[in-house]
Amino acid sequence: MTSLIDQLIGFVSANAWLAYLTLFLAALLEAVPVVGSVIPGSTIILALSALVPGGELKLQWVLLAAIAGALIGDGSAFWTGHRAQKEILNTWPLTNYPRVVAQSEAFFRRWGAWAVFLARFVPPIRAFVPITAGALGMAPVRFYAVNIPAILLWAPAHVLPGVLAISALHQYAGMPHHGLGKHYWILTVIGGAIIVALAAWTIRRRHGGGAIEPATKQSR
């Protein structure tokens, strides 16, 4: 395990652009309806941000990749809905997820512009609210006035915990800044367990205890 982790860190160090591309795609795909509900983008961003303190990745580029991906992802979803209008909410593959679409629509109608801001921090609704906002006729200027500040807060909120956790271990637990070795997999396992637990709790709380699943013929 130690050798595999060391090899992974060495690979990222030598091919940092792939890590930044992965961060970008993770943030972008989280905003794609349906796809964003299953892509563990937040987990990927948090995991890769843990490589910042060791110098394998640069904080400013990690943040930029996450911000750019989220902006393009949310913007693309919004404009898709804006151009197609409400009809897109009744087309495939959204028709396979009527409950989530209905929840997103109700969430947007209740909170208005605030729904765009809040949804950025609530998986998996954030994969549906931008397209819903566009489909329901939200003005582009108003959308970006809320979406951009939300993303500028969302990115540090996902990146900095990993950076701070590793930095704290460097400082207080005596971990070296390079060659994290056998300690790194322990942190990975603990961090992954916490993330999965929080994600499951959030999904159950927001969606009545069930995961997002396609509608069956009986439920239609």
Rank of each mutant, 00 (worst) to 15 (best):
M138N: 09
L187S: 03
A66F: 09
L48G: 01
I166T: 02
L28A: 09
T80V: 14
V141T: 12
F121Y: 11
T43A: 10
G75W: 01
N147E: 07
T80F: 12
Y184V: 03
T22C: 02
W111I: 00
P214Q: 02
A211K: 03
I39A: 11
L46A: 07
K182A: 15
Y184M: 01
P176L: 00
G81Q: 01
P161R: 01
V100S: 10
A211Q: 10
V38T: 08
A113D: 07
I186V: 11
P124S: 08
W92F: 15
R83G: 14
V122C: 15
L28C: 09
M138I: 07
T216Q: 09
A211G: 13
R120M: 13
M1D: 15
R205M: 08
H170V: 06
E105A: 15
G36F: 04
L152K: 05
F78G: 03
Q7G: 12
A168H: 05
I148W: 13
G209I: 09
A26R: 03
A150W: 00
L160Q: 03
A157M: 12
I9K: 02
L180C: 02
A145V: 11
T2H: 07
T132Q: 11
V146S: 04
L57D: 08
S13Q: 14
H177K: 08
V35M: 13
